[in-house]
């Protein structure tokens, strides 16, 4: 653990990513306690107020301006980050659990189970992820729960493929063979012996998937298929603000900056984790 943090501090990009991610997570967690204006209550007197930095600490200040209903953009971005990060985290966990378990099963049993599963992965890969997501959201209807399901559905196969490959190699190792020899059951071998050994690659994939899922969540919300109003979500803010692009540039600019910074920091952290733990994963996406 100590060498892990030493390596992190040595890598400037990784440290930068780690610090930014920490700041964003803290900002999301603390958003309701920062004394910001309500993200959903409209204030028609202050519609489309431009960003002002004078008197920034006074209660009525809007450092990033207000939107078409007079809602504070900064407050909406921070509250939006709670929803965005929660959805992304839930999808990553759901997709990660399903994908990792299926990967272990396929790699351990091999044979027909493995072949069927890998064909399913191939078929799903033949459908661009965005189209699959659109198709499923159109079928299930837009809601937060369905959004999480759809995002997890686009994500599980990355885990399944890579974990399967790792398990194929692991199952021939001595510690697995000896577990067999002392009569450990299949279930016990998969959970107690294989799972801990694939947690590291799963964590690396999860970090990189988190970045991809944040962008996809924003795209689906942008198309009106994600979190429903009045809850602020970054993609939705971009879609609503786009209408006012010629009069109020800030409404459509700052949520995008928030997405870029978040994705960038998660990517930097993920790239560093990958290079630190297992550079071979680079070619396996």
């Amino acid at each position: 653990m100590k060498s892990f943090f030493l390596a992190l501090i040595k890598s400037r990009a990784g440290l930068f990513g780690f610090l930014l991610v920490t700041v964003f997570v803290l900002a999301a967690l603390l958003a309701p306690y920062l004394g910001l204006p309500s993200p959903t209550r409209s204030n028609l007197v202050a519609r489309m107020a431009a960003p002002t930095w004078t008197g920034i600490f006074s209660p009525g200040a809007h450092p990033l301006g207000t939107d078409e209903l007079g809602r504070d953009v900064l407050s909406r971005i921070l509250h939006g980050s709670r929803i965005t990060l929660a959805i992304a985290a839930a999808s990553v966990v759901l997709g990660g659990i399903v994908g990792t378990l299926l990967g272990i099963v396929a790699g351990y049993y091999r044979g027909i189970v493995d072949r069927v599963l890998m064909r399913v992965v191939d078929i799903q890969l033949a459908l661009p992820l965005m189209l699959l997501a659109l198709l499923v959201v159109a079928a299930l209807g837009p809601s937060t729960r369905n959004l999480i399901i759809v995002l997890a559905l686009t994500s599980w196969l990355r885990y399944a493929r890579i974990i399967r490959g790792q398990v194929l190699a692991l199952r021939e190792r001595e510690f697995i063979l000896s577990a067999h020899a002392i009569g450990a059951g299949t279930w016990r071998i998969m959970i107690k012996h294989l799972l801990p050994n694939v947690m590291t690659p799963a964590l690396v994939i999860a970090t990189l998937e988190l970045a991809r899922i944040i962008i996809m969540d924003a795209a689906l919300s942008f198309l009106g298929l994600g979190v429903q109003p009045p809850n602020p979500s970054w993609g939705r803010m971009l879609a609503d603000g786009r209408v006012y692009i010629s009069t109020a540039w800030w409404i459509v600019t700052f949520p995008g900056v928030a997405i870029v910074l978040t994705v960038l920091s998660v990517n930097l952290l993920g790239d560093w984790l990958r290079d630190y733990f297992d550079p071979k994963l680079r070619t396996m996406r």
């Binding site: 962008i215 924003a218 795209a219 692009i245 995008g256 870029v260 910074l261 994705v263 990517n267």
Partner: peptide, 22 residues
């Protein structure tokens, strides 16, 4: 390249519209 990968295409599109069209 890192920034390019972190930028959602639709937002980049909106920003380019803002600068070059609007």
């Amino acid at each position: 390249a890192l920034l390019g990968q972190a930028t959602p295409v639709f937002w980049l599109g909106i920003m380019l519209i803002l600068i070059f069209a609007v």
